[in-house]
């Protein structure tokens, strides 16, 4: 066999391998996407069909919502403060410091409140949801439920979905209020913006449509966080490159937090473009 022919065979093999890998990857992500969509449908159905049990939902609202309050208040306060600082300095250039109240409130209510709340909840509660379900899967607890003819979607997933959808708007509201307070402290307290102007512009400029937009976003973000984090934990055993053991769960949890955060930002754009 000539050298050229060997080279050609080698090259063909490499090219084929490359396409094989691409195809493999494509099929994997297609399957994973399909699984996640079916998971979403099952979970939504499990959330709305009877019997309704209130105790597990309250427990999850505590885990996802109540335990996140501290971090939400903290980030909300500092986001509002930095908005006050930046807003004041920028508006001063145009001699429009009076509009600070409206600027702080609108940016928080329409955009920063829902998005930052969702990102914080993803980091704090989304990761916990994913790891918890992943460990349940790996230690055969989900199999055990199925064998007992107990629907894991109804028993484990649905309470988390409902709790996330209820908690996110409430946490967002807290974020907004604390953020406005932060803006007030810096803008009025430190930098001397007129208090009356601060609140008057806020009252006249913030419309119900703005609050509605924030509310819609936060509900959607709650759904996205619950969906992505639960489903990735639920399918940890099907994850690429081995989803087993502690390392598998940790890798999938990292991926869930990243995907969930990115999805929040992507969907934020689309929801805004639909509602604006």
């Amino acid at each position: 066999m000539s050298l050229n022919k060997i080279n050609l065979n080698f090259l063909t093999e490499r090219i084929l391998n490359f396409f094989e890998k691409i195809g493999d990857l494509f099929i994997y992500y297609l399957e994973q996407g399909g699984r996640m969509v079916i998971f979403l449908l099952y979970s939504l159905y499990a959330s709305i069909r009877p019997p309704y049990k209130i105790a597990p939902v309250i427990k999850q609202i505590f885990v996802i919502g109540a335990l996140s309050i501290f971090v939400i208040v903290f980030t909300g306060l500092f986001s509002g403060m930095v908005l006050g600082l930046q807003g004041h300095n920028t508006l001063k250039k145009f001699g429009a410091e009076g509009l600070l109240g409206s600027a702080v409130a609108l940016s928080l209510i329409r955009e920063l409140g829902p998005v930052l709340t969702a990102l914080m909840v993803t980091g704090r509660a989304g990761s916990a949801i994913c790891a918890e379900i992943g460990i349940m899967r790996n230690s055969e607890q989900i199999d055990a439920l199925e064998c007992m003819a107990i629907d894991p979607y109804k028993f484990i997933i649905a309470p988390k979905f409902i709790a996330a959808i209820i908690s996110l708007p409430l946490l967002t509201a807290i974020f907004d209020v604390v953020g406005i307070l932060g803006g007030y402290l810096v803008g009025v307290g430190l930098l001397g913006t007129n208090e009356g102007a601060f609140f008057n512009t806020m009252i006249s400029d913030v419309k119900f449509a703005d609050i509605y937009m924030g509310l819609v976003k936060s509900v959607f973000f709650g759904l996205i966080i619950a969906w992505i984090c639960s489903s990735m934990g639920y399918f940890v055993h099907m994850a690429r490159n081995g989803g087993f053991g502690a390392e598998g769960v940790s890798r999938v949890t990292t991926n869930a937090v990243v995907l969930s955060s990115v999805s929040v930002l992507v969907f934020d754009y689309f929801i805004t473009s639909m509602l604006i």
């Binding site: 918890e132 230690s139 055969e140 607890q141 055990a144 199925e146 064998c147 007992m148 003819a149 629907d151």
Partner: peptide
Amino acid sequence: LKEIRSNFGVLFQNSALFDS
């Protein structure tokens, strides 16, 4: 399938108890 499984009892290798 759920109906059929309602006849089953399973003792898993690692017991698979709900750890929480």
